[in-house]
């Protein structure tokens, strides 16, 4: 269960197919969960899954994803697990970073350690 940061809601009118409405009604009858709560839950799950898919395809950043859904970065690993969607750089991106920046980042780290030590002394 993700932990929403915002409690703001917007009232909107939505035409729901009869079959979906019947499903929610039956779901409500069986589980005792309010029909509109169930529909909202399903809407949210769909948004989480589809937006996460966009993150995995590099169309949306993880930072934007958490902002849009009003959740935190800490929720992301459990959502990737829930929907079985892996996010992160592609193999080509990992190789690009190694080829292009690994040496320079290493040198920066080395200098950073040295200057930090000097500051501490």
């Amino acid at each position: 269960m993700t932990r929403k940061l915002s409690k703001k809601n917007q009232i909107t009118s939505l035409e729901i197919p009869l079959e979906l409405s019947s499903c929610a009604e039956l779901f409500s009858e069986i589980t005792g969960i309010d029909k509109s709560d169930a529909l909202l839950d399903w809407l949210r799950s769909g948004a989480e899954r589809e937006m996460l898919r966009l993150v995995s395809e590099g169309e949306l950043s993880a930072g934007k994803f958490v902002e849009l859904l009003g959740i935190t970065y800490f929720d992301v690993p459990q959502l990737t697990e829930k929907y079985n969607i892996e996010i992160g750089p592609t193999e080509e991106q990992v190789q690009y970073m190694w080829d292009k920046h690994a040496e320079a980042v290493g040198a920066i780290l080395k200098k950073s350690v040295k200057s930090h030590q000097e500051q501490q002394d």
């Binding site: 993150v55 995995s56 395809e57 590099g58 169309e59 949306l60 950043s61 993880a62 930072g63 934007k64 996010i87 992160g88 750089p89 592609t90 991106q93 970073m97």
Partner: peptide, 8 residues
């Protein structure tokens, strides 16, 4: 950074 979009 580990974000595909941001890296792109």
């Amino acid at each position: 950074s580990d974000d595909q979009r941001f890296l792109r």
